[in-house]
């Protein structure tokens, strides 16, 4: 048995050394911080639940009167007419068109910009390009909407190209939405590509690969999970974007069968109808929430798919 040497603790009974202990002071500050942080997290969760409830309750009221199948598969959207009809398919077609057109623009340009920034640009060019992209991301969507309506649709499509299209089109809204999303896709995928270790590029170069081969065959697959995340983020933004489509896509809810047609998207309908004079509790009022709930579920689905894909392609390097 060894005796523990006294290390200057409070004096105890003479002759008996105080027992050695690891006991520390209670740390109240830690606990306060912990509670504050938990509170911050709880607010976001509570808000999500609150929004979900606020959507579900009126939506349930809607679905008590209109069968879900009529809503999901009906091809006529006329909630305000005397002979009302609540088929959401026209809104979905418009949303699909604008989203797809936006992606056709945003994915190639966004990934191209990311490749340029991450693989080709010298530091000087990078320093100029990145802030420009960020400015593009900071423009209010109402400005984009105006740009889509007046310049793209009015000047470019109708005057310059002489396209047989009316004052609105899903093409103009989709193209401008695509431009708006480019910085998001570019920035997120550029981060993913820059995170690929330099050693991999060198290994590829040492085998006689040129820069494009290295970019497409080594960096791209290595960064794939981040690139997928970037594209999915673009999809979510396109599906949820409201101002541009409300201004430039049109406000008549009809099934859209071509890019030059006008059409009302789900978000466009909500924005328009929410400004109207629907009486609280009326079927027209509840319609808003049914569409809102559907939008929410679509976004949720996109996110789940995204998480699954990102996991599937994640590389641990």
């Amino acid at each position: 048995m060894t005796t523990v040497r006294e290390t200057g603790g409070p004096a105890k009974a003479p002759g008996r050394p105080a027992p050695f202990t690891f006991a520390g002071k209670p740390r109240y500050g830690e606990r306060v911080i912990r509670v504050l942080l938990a509170l911050a997290a709880a607010v976001t969760i509570a808000t999500t639940i609150g929004i979900l409830l606020a959507l579900i309750v009126p939506a349930l009221g809607f679905f008590r009167e209109i069968p879900v199948t009529d809503f999901l598969f009906g091809d006529r959207w006329a909630p305000r007419f005397a002979k009302a009809s609540f088929g959401v398919v026209p809104l979905i077609t418009a949303t699909l068109w604008t989203t797809l057109i936006a992606l056709v623009i945003a994915v190639p340009f966004g990934l191209g910009a990311a490749m340029l920034l991450s693989e080709y640009a010298r530091p000087g060019l990078r320093k100029i390009l990145k802030p420009v992209l960020e400015i593009l991301a900071g423009i209010p969507t109402v400005v984009y909407g105006l740009f889509a309506l007046t310049f793209v649709q009015g000047t470019v499509f109708r005057q310059w190209l002489g396209l047989g299209t009316g004052a609105f089109s899903v093409l103009a809204a989709g193209v401008v939405m695509g431009i708006m999303i480019v910085p998001t896709v570019a920035s997120v995928s550029e981060d993913a590509m820059s995170a690929v270790p330099q050693a991999m590029r060198q290994g590829s170069a040492a085998l006689g690969a040129n820069r494009m081969q290295t970019t497409l065959r080594v960096v791209f697959p290595a960064a794939l999970s981040g690139i997928i995340a970037a594209i999915v983020l673009g999809v979510s933004r396109a599906v949820g974007e409201t101002m541009i489509v409300a201004m430039a896509a049109g406000s008549q809810a009809r099934i859209v069968s071509g890019p030059l047609e006008q059409g009302q998207t789900m978000t466009g309908f909500i924005a328009n109808a929410a400004l109207g004079d629907s009486r609280v509790g009326s079927i027209q009022y509840d319609t808003l929430f049914a569409v809102g709930l559907l939008l929410f579920l679509i976004t949720l689905l996109v996110n789940f798919v995204s998480i699954a894909l990102v996991r599937r392609y994640r590389q641990a390097y």
Binding site: P197, A199, M200, Q202, G203, S204, A206, V218, P221, A222, Q315, Y317
Partner: peptide, 9 residues
């Protein structure tokens, strides 16, 4: 190279 750098393939 110094550190093994296989491709993610």
């Amino acid at each position: 190279f110094q550190k093994p750098n296989p491709f993610p393939k």
